[in-house]
Amino acid sequence: MRESSPVIVMEVPTILNDVEGQAFLQETQPLLEGGRPCLVLDCSHLQRVDSAGIEVLLHCMEDAMKRDGDVKLAAVSPACAALLELMRVDRVFEIFQTAQEAVQSFHTPAAIDAPVTLPWYSHPGGLDALKAAS
């Protein structure tokens, strides 16, 4: 079992462009330096974002993934969702309606963890049972 880390919820500023994004990145950097950082970016106040801002979000995600963590987005407005979709970033981040849902999702075991905790050769029915089940 993995050790669960505390989930940190951080509010994204109203404007996320090149200038604001750098300030935001400096603010989040310490949070991403620990082991397996779990970060929820609350975008409920985010009104304007451009490609530099999206770059900052991706940078956060990259840093978190390097340390086996994750960054999830919450309360993304339709306008921001449209922009994320335009830049193909919507498939990179998990997006939730509220920050609370995003926090809970960190505590829910992901489906991809199952083979790690239970390898196929340790399955009671063996490989054939696994094939039949799939």
Partner: peptide, 18 residues
């Protein structure tokens, strides 16, 4: 200007690279 029919919102894109 981008009008997303999926999200039902019109967005003004300030980034000319988009």
């Amino acid at each position: 200007k981008l009008f997303s029919l999926a999200h039902g919102v019109a967005v003004e894109i300030s980034d000319p690279s988009l």
